[in-house]
Simulated assay, not measured.
Amino acid sequence: MWLQYNKIENLRLAIAQIDGLVIQPNEVFSFWYLVGNPTKQRGFQLGMVLDNGKVSTGYGGGLCQLANLIYWMTLHSPLSVKERWRHSYDVFPDVNRTLPFGSGATVSYNYIDLQIENKTPHQYQLCLWLTDEHLCRAIHSDMESHYRYEIVEKNHLISGPVAGKYMRQNQLFRKICDRHTNQLLDEELITENCALMMYAPLLSAGK
């Protein structure tokens, strides 16, 4: 439980560096440029981190949750993803999973970054905050959006075993619809994911 409390403090420190940021036309948002090195000296706490598929602890642990959220926000806006790294390991089963597999973004200071580019002629402001129970977000713009975005999973596949391990793959597509009529205007491939599963994907006989 203490790791969870520490993660909240880490999120609070990182959010303070990002909340309210306005991404101007032709500007690039960099997660680590804004958050900086999550060191003990800067107040960051030991939190849960994933190292080669294994759960460990490190200062700033839990910041991937913030990167996941910003990536998901971007996919539901006209902003473009310039740099995003997928998770190489699928560590947790789908119980209570609300988003498609592979819809997150991993970060590790300072070489695995999340970068968002504004290729539009409009300003976009990132708003982030914590409540007692949730990490919340909003994107504001100086131009009303005429589009609605939906992320869908296709071609999901679990293969193996090879040396006792299974691989999980899928593709994520983004549907762009007219906000007022719901007419589908475009569908584009966002990313292809491939991760080594760190749990058994199949139930044992009799379970």
Rank of each mutant, 00 (worst) to 15 (best):
1 M>I: 07
1 M>C: 06
3 L>N: 05
3 L>Q: 08
4 Q>F: 13
5 Y>E: 15
9 E>Q: 15
10 N>C: 12
11 L>P: 05
12 R>G: 06
12 R>I: 03
16 A>W: 03
17 Q>M: 06
18 I>Q: 00
18 I>M: 04
22 V>S: 04
22 V>I: 14
24 Q>C: 02
24 Q>V: 10
24 Q>G: 05
26 N>P: 04
26 N>K: 15
27 E>Y: 10
33 Y>R: 15
36 G>H: 08
40 K>H: 13
46 L>N: 01
49 V>A: 06
50 L>P: 00
51 D>Q: 15
52 N>G: 11
52 N>M: 13
53 G>A: 10
53 G>S: 05
55 V>P: 02
57 T>P: 04
62 G>D: 03
67 A>V: 11
68 N>D: 14
70 I>Q: 01
73 M>N: 07
74 T>E: 02
76 H>R: 14
76 H>T: 06
77 S>C: 09
78 P>S: 10
78 P>W: 03
80 S>I: 14
83 E>M: 13
84 R>Y: 07
85 W>E: 12
87 H>A: 11
89 Y>P: 01
89 Y>H: 12
95 V>P: 00
97 R>L: 09
97 R>V: 02
102 G>A: 14
103 S>F: 05
103 S>L: 07
105 A>F: 06
106 T>W: 03
109 Y>F: 14
110 N>G: 07
114 L>F: 07
115 Q>E: 13
116 I>P: 00
117 E>W: 14
118 N>E: 10
120 T>S: 14
121 P>R: 09
121 P>S: 10
122 H>T: 01
128 L>N: 02
129 W>Y: 14
135 L>Y: 05
141 S>H: 08
141 S>N: 11
143 M>P: 00
144 E>S: 11
144 E>M: 13
148 R>H: 13
149 Y>S: 08
152 V>D: 05
153 E>P: 02
154 K>E: 09
154 K>W: 03
154 K>I: 06
156 H>Q: 14
158 I>M: 10
159 S>W: 05
161 P>T: 14
161 P>L: 15
163 A>T: 13
163 A>M: 15
165 K>G: 02
167 M>W: 12
167 M>F: 12
167 M>K: 12
168 R>T: 09
169 Q>H: 15
171 Q>H: 12
171 Q>K: 14
172 L>S: 04
173 F>I: 01
175 K>T: 05
175 K>F: 13
178 D>W: 05
178 D>H: 08
180 H>R: 08
182 N>W: 04
183 Q>L: 12
183 Q>Y: 06
184 L>V: 06
184 L>Q: 01
185 L>T: 02
185 L>M: 11
186 D>T: 08
187 E>F: 03
191 T>D: 12
193 N>W: 08
194 C>V: 11
196 L>W: 04
198 M>F: 09
200 A>P: 04
204 S>T: 07
206 G>M: 09
207 K>P: 01
207 K>F: 12
